[in-house]
């Protein structure tokens, strides 16, 4: 290339193509995405976060929590499990079959075969689907995260580093507001080998007034406030805890199916 025109047009073509592919394309495909329906249900998903949690998302952004925490669950595959719901008219045959058949951690084909064997013997079965992977085994979620989980978030903070655990479902894993607040105030009080710094500035240590505040933290032994004092979250602290409690992204969806535990008999 001896002239600047050649370079200019090559650059224009190269960058233009990737812009069309990675900026324009996703905008067309997902830019107008709407709520979807939860699998086998009429519930819509996701729902907007309530006001306090929405404000807490901005606290999460402002202090840079995403520098250490991801908010995305990964999955490596799926597995099937055949569950007998009724032994039918011939319980002996079915129960004999049960002891010989492998019923968990199956592929789709193996699950179908096992289910057919049991149904042929008169039993009634259900086939349950579950996601597999290290994140799922750790209990960080029931399925991998998908685009629909982040529909209403601005900014969407997926995170790049797991210096701390994934938070995609922290609100479901620990639905106790006091636990979340105590963890922010003194992480080691609830997680012994936590590497998280304490966020004491989100709390106010103040003398107990005429009556103790209903918002005061219930701190475990060894971490109590000094005598006559109580620990109360500031506005930001309460918002952040509300946001963490609102993190709950495991509705079964068409693109991320699984059988919820409650459906099991």
């Amino acid at each position: 290339m001896k002239t600047s025109y050649g370079v200019f047009f090559a650059v224009l073509a190269a960058l233009g193509a990737s812009w069309a592919g990675f900026v324009l394309g996703p905008l067309i495909q997902l830019g107008a995405a709407q709520q979807t329906t939860v699998l086998n249900s009429t519930d819509v998903y996701p729902i907007q976060r309530p006001g306090l949690a929405a404000m807490g998302a901005q606290v999460y952004r402002s202090y840079g929590c995403a520098a250490c925490h991801t908010r995305q669950v990964q999955q490596t595959g799926i597995s099937f499990e055949v569950v007998l719901t009724s032994p039918g008219k011939d319980p002996v045959t079915v129960s004999n079959l049960l002891s010989t058949l492998k019923l968990t951690a199956l592929t789709k084909e193996a699950a179908d075969t096992a289910a057919k064997t049991l149904t042929d013997a008169g039993g009634k079965t259900e086939t349950h689907l579950s996601a597999t992977g290290a994140d799922i085994s750790r209990g960080w979620g029931s399925r991998h995260s998908v685009a629909a989980d982040y529909l209403y978030d601005v900014p969407v903070e997926l995170g790049t580093l797991r210096a701390g655990p994934d938070l995609a479902n922290i609100g479901q894993r620990n639905p106790d507001a006091n636990w979340q607040l105590v963890h922010l105030y003194a992480p080691k009080a609830v997680v012994k080998d936590s590497a998280m710094p304490s966020f004491k500035f989100l709390f106010q240590v103040r003398p107990v007034g005429a009556a103790p505040s209903p918002d005061a933290l219930k701190l475990p032994a060894g971490f109590e406030a000094p005598a006559g004092m109580e620990v109360v979250p500031t506005a930001e602290g309460a918002e952040l805890a509300a946001y963490l409690l609102s993190l709950h992204a495991d509705a079964p969806l068409y693109e991320a199916p699984y059988t919820p535990a409650t459906a099991k008999p």
Binding site: F22, P26, V154, P155
Partner: peptide, 14 residues
Amino acid sequence: FPPRGVVQNIIDWW
């Protein structure tokens, strides 16, 4: 007007 959902992340990765 930021785009919806993960489109934000895709643009950021790009």
